[in-house]
Design a binder for these strands. Structure first.
Length: 272
DNA sequence: ACTGGATCCTGACTGC
DNA sequence: TGCAGTCAGGATCCAG
């Protein structure tokens, strides 16, 4: 799936053709996502103006005057912008949002871990958004946030980094990459990492995510952007997926371990 | 309150 | 060519 940079790339890609336009039709082909799509969705947003598309963590928030459509791409989802005559839907093209003027957003998600939820009223109070930590690319996120959250925690620092109540948007790839840049062993107990090292880690998170957003996200497997194109691969991954290869910094072999059921890559020479 | 584990689902890939 | 097993970018939910 899309990690934060891929979701942000999608948001930027679909915004110009959809913001300020009215929805002319909604096609639901498959409602069984992580939670079922409300069958009333078409009647709720057809004829309504899409005021904006915002992002919180890896959620996209489609803002209408009468509510918010909360969209998550899960592990395998994509949202594709189609302008002009739409091709016939492929397998797993579950939803179309059609806009006046012809632009169409097509939601594709083979594994169906994503969601499309209608929220009335204050979306930020919704249980899925309420308890989320700060955005990693905004001012509120720094080393002190990580340090405070880590005290007394015995689980691995990588798991702290991927805990959405601590900081949002750091997925499995970028967690490994940020820890590599900061020189921290992903297995280290979160509560035993110093404040100074958390400053370095917070900077590394900002760097990695910032660079990736700037270059349109990273492609692995089946990620495509809103134009259906794969990401640029412009952000070089130093350790993720490179078990056995030479560390770009010290040439030691990169190791792979499992942490919290997720593959984790690191350099035993550079990361302590 | 924190922690690890199971879980949702399809598809790509590996080894026999 | 088929079949079984493993793994995948997420994150919620539940038991202990």
């Amino acid at each position: 799936m899309p990690e934060l940079p891929e979701v942000e790339t999608t948001r930027r890609g679909i915004l110009p053709a959809t913001k300020g336009r009215s929805v002319s039709a909604v096609v639901l082909r498959e409602r069984r996502l992580r939670w079922p799509i409300d069958p009333a969705l078409p009647s709720l947003i057809t004829g309504r103006l899409l005021e904006n598309i915002e992002r919180r963590a890896k959620y996209l928030l489609f803002r209408f005057a009468n509510g918010t459509l909360l969209v998550h791409l899960g592990m395998s989802g994509s949202l594709r912008l189609i302008e002009g005559a739409p091709p016939p839907p492929r397998k797993h093209d579950h939803v179309d949002l059609v806009f006046e003027g012809g632009a169409l957003l097509r939601y594709h998600d083979p594994r169906r871990f994503g969601c499309m939820l209608w929220i009335e009223g204050d979306a930020s109070a919704h249980p899925l958004l309420r308890d989320l930590g700060p955005e990693p690319l905004e001012e509120a996120f720094d080393g002190a946030v990580l340090f405070r959250a880590s005290r007394g925690r015995r689980s691995a620092v990588k798991q702290l980094l991927m805990d959405g109540t601590v900081v949002v948007g750091v997925g499995n790839i970028y967690a490994s990459e940020a820890l590599f840049r900061a020189g921290i062993d992903p297995r280290r107990a979160a509560g035993k990492v110093s404040a100074a090292r958390y400053e370095a880690l917070a900077s590394a998170v900002r760097e990695v995510l910032g660079e990736s957003v700037a270059t349109g996200g990273t492609t692995l497997r089946d990620y495509v952007d809103s134009n259906g194109r794969p990401g640029e691969f412009a952000l070089r991954l130093n350790v993720y997926g490179r078990e056995g290869e030479a560390c770009p910094r010290c040439a030691a072999a990169i190791r792979q371990v499992r942490l919290g059921q997720r593959s984790t890559f690191f350099c035993i020479g550079c990361q302590r």
